[in-house]
Nucleic acid binder design. Structure first.
Lengths: 112, 112
DNA sequence: AAAAATCGTTTCGCAGCCGTATTATCACTT
DNA sequence: AAGTGATAATACGGCTGCGAAACGATTTTT
């Protein structure tokens, strides 16, 4: 990946967001996006506490985001059988597809 | 700007959002971002109706976003003196600085 | 076994944004 | 001048997310 001017960067960001907004798709919040991409791009296992620490937010924020996103089938919860206090945040097929499509959208925006 | 893999694109997006979220700055919604960048990147004049059409949202969405963002001094309203029904959305010094910093953040994220 | 610590969830009151419908101004048409 | 059209703002009820605090379940410590 090479040279990008300030203007290039902003226009890329703008294009992606415009696509997102005008499409009217389920618009996740910034925090929800952060959680989603963290789970799909970083190596696990991912716990509620771990995600909260990584994003510098409180745990209820993670819990609520998981409620919303698991209902959209973008993520799933699973009790850790080794330590039943923990919840492991897991990927889903639909979520993986969603994230991959998002990458394609960014690339398409960068091509202009 | 050159070759970008799907993974590159997603990691770029992830880094920028993570920075945004963990910084805990006033997190604008996607729609607010779309408005902000449209005003700063596209040629004006920008009206409420025009922005609503461009983003495919209703006018009250724009009005409320302008309420919030003008309070943050990221944008300003000005009555069009040629047609006093119109409101012209104008840039501010603080807003220009904010947008430019955002571009720098994207570039920094792309460097990794 | 009892006490303390850890983890995720839930509750509470509160603030923000949503879409629809209505309102107040202003411009245009006749 | 009166009526019609257009613009932005507001009112309304509803939904979602927020932070702080309290809670139940599980593990670890004493």
């Amino acid at each position: 990946m090479a040279e990008m001017s300030n203007r290039d960067a902003l226009e890329l960001w703008h294009d992606v967001i415009m696509n997102q907004v005008s499409q009217g798709a389920h618009d996740l919040s910034m925090r929800q996006f952060a959680i989603l991409f963290t789970v799909y791009l970083e190596v696990g296992p991912h716990t509620v506490r771990g995600l909260a620490a990584k994003l510098s937010v409180t745990k209820p924020v993670i819990t609520r985001a998981l409620d919303a996103m698991s209902q959209l089938d973008l993520l799933a919860r699973k009790r850790d059988q080794n330590d039943k206090r923990n919840v492991l945040v897991q990927r889903t097929v639909a979520g993986a597809l969603y994230v991959e499509n998002y990458g394609d959208l960014i690339i398409r925006s960068a091509k202009n």
